[in-house]
Structures are given as structure tokens and as C-alpha cells.
Design a protein around this nucleic acid. Structure first.
Length: 263
DNA sequence: ATTATTGTTGGTAG
DNA sequence: TCTACCAACAATAA
């Protein structure tokens, strides 16, 4: 379930498993994932390469290789990295990396049921990475720059704008929904109508929902219970004002909000 | 059987 | 060139 917190969690795990290791072998089970490279070309490009760093920006991961070059990885809707216990492929495994660190081997599997995720092996930074907006977890946000962008969108809703990766990197449907609830702002508000005070509240909301999600993931009991306050809770009472939460469609995505306290 | 799902991209129409 | 909308990608769960 990757939005920013999930990808950050994956980054931490990957760093632990393969940081400063060497890619001993690479096996691509599904050609779609490494397009436009052919599986054999991707495997050849990665085998034997040292790993220098693993970073995240928004929902993208970047593995920097010794001697130059990168693997950019986007998890799509259902992508995930798992540590495998042996050589048998996991369910929906698409790529396997065997990492050598000293005498130890780590079997790192990329698993992705729907296959919307992909990896790109590249010598240079790719546009998908460099055109991302500021990352709300890592970067200082220039409020004036964000406001200037929002002002140009007369018709677009603030909810849709928040999911635009050029505005802020990493916010998706769930966390846009949760952040706007926290900020008391109606998701249907036109982006251009958002003022500085609103934006400050939204940014607080974004950090609030990201921090909560990250904490849940690191506790390790994710999936055990529904961690969201209003996402997916249409028809139930608002936890803040008890008004019944409603859902609507915004830019093609289901959006939940409280008609009582989100203005 | 039907509908929904956390994301992105490419086509089309304006 | 910019904006807005929608279908497509694919596999599951309710």
C-alpha cells in the first residue's frame, strides 16, 4: 500500500538488507517490471555492482551504484520488497536480488501482484525523479512557491492538487484525504482559493498523517487494524464532530470528507 | 457477478 | 501549450 510512509518504510528495510552490499545476482521474473530494458540486459547491468546509497523522494526509491548509474523503483499500487528465506520465488515475486555483504547473503525479492510498479536502470537521473516537488518528510517546504503553484489552478480541487507529485512528492489518495480532514478543509475547494493560513494547516495535516502511518508501520502491526481516521469511513460519524462522513468522486478518485467540519 | 482498490500515463477533447 | 477527464494497466477482496 505505497504512499510516502510505506515507501519510506521500504527504504529503511532495503538499507538494512543491502546498504553497502554488492549485487551478487539479479533475476528478473517479469519483463514488464524492468521495461524498457529486456530482463537479460537488466540482469547483466546489475550483477556484480556495489550499492552506494538508497534514497527516497516522494514515492520513488533510488539505488545508487558504485561506479555510477542508478536503479529507480516505483512500487505502483501493490509493489513491495521482502526478504526471502530461500531460493523459492515468493507469491507474485517479479525480481530477485541476491546481495552479498561480507560472508552474508540477503535474498531480496520485489513482489507486486498488480504489476503497476516498475524499475528503471539508468546511467543518469530520470525525469520522473528530478521533476518531483519537495518531499514533505525530508525537505523544507517553501510555502510561497507552493502557494504560487496553487494560485494557477482555478478549477482543480485542492485534493487533486495535493496528489500532484510536482506540488508535493509522496501524497496520494489516502493521505490527501486524511490531511484535509485534519486541516478542516473541504477537499472540493478550488486550489486557487487556498490561502497561506489554509496551506499551513494542510502542511501540518500532511505531516500528521505521514508520521502516524510511519509509526504504525514501524510498530510492525500494520494491517492488523484500520489506521485511518476518515479514509474508507464514509457513512460513519466524524471522529471530531459526529456528522456522518460522506464520499464523493474527485479527479476520478474516491474522496471521503466531513460536511460538518471541513469547510 | 459486481464493484472497489493505495498510482501513473497516455489519449482525447476543449 | 495547458487543462480536465477517462481508460488502461492487473489481481485481488468484499
Amino acid at each position: 500500500m505505497p504512499e510516502l510512509p510505506d515507501v519510506e518504510y521500504v527504504r529503511k528495510r532495503l538499507s538494512r538488507w543491502i546498504g553497502h552490499g554488492r549485487i551478487d545476482s539479479c533475476k528478473v521474473h517479469d519483463a514488464r517490471i524492468v521495461r524498457p530494458l529486456r530482463p537479460s540486459a537488466a540482469e547483466r547491468a546489475l550483477t556484480g555492482r556495489g550499492v552506494r546509497a538508497i534514497d527516497r523522494r516522494g514515492k520513488w526509491l533510488r539505488i545508487s551504484l558504485e561506479g555510477g548509474g542508478f536503479v529507480f523503483s516505483h512500487l505502483g499500487m501493490t509493489g513491495w520488497f521482502e526478504l526471502a528465506r530461500d531460493d523459492a520465488p515468493l507469491r507474485f515475486e517479479r525480481v530477485r536480488l541476491t546481495i552479498a555483504r561480507g560472508r552474508k547473503l540477503a535474498r531480496v525479492a520485489y513482489v507486486d501482484a498488480r504489476r503497476f510498479g516498475h524499475m528503471r536502470v539508468a546511467d543518469e537521473e530520470v525525469a520522473a525523479w528530478s521533476s518531483l516537488g519537495p518531499d514533505p518528510l525530508d525537505d523544507e517546504i517553501d510555502l510561497d512557491a507552493v502557494l504560487a503553484r496553487l494560485a494557477k489552478w482555478k478549477k482543480r480541487t485542492i485534493k487533486d492538487a495535493l496528489m500532484d507529485q510536482r506540488l508535493l512528492a509522496g501524497v496520494g489518495n489516502i493521505h490527501a484525504t486524511e490531511a484535509l480532514w485534519k486541516a478542516h478543509i473541504d477537499p472540493r475547494t478550488r486550489a486557487g482559493k487556498i490561502d497561506r493560513k489554509d496551506l499551513v494547516a494542510i502542511m501540518k495535516g500532511v505531516r500528521w498523517t505521514i508520521d502516524r502511518a510511519l509509526l504504525d508501520l514501524e510498530k510492525g502491526d500494520a494491517g492488523a487494524k484500520d489506521p485511518f481516521v476518515i479514509y474508507g469511513h464514509a457513512g460513519k460519524p466524524c471522529p471530531r464532530c459526529r456528522t456522518t462522513l460522506v464520499k464523493t468522486q474527485l479527479a476520478g478518485r474516491t474522496t471521503t470528507y466531513c460536511p460538518g467540519c471541513q469547510k
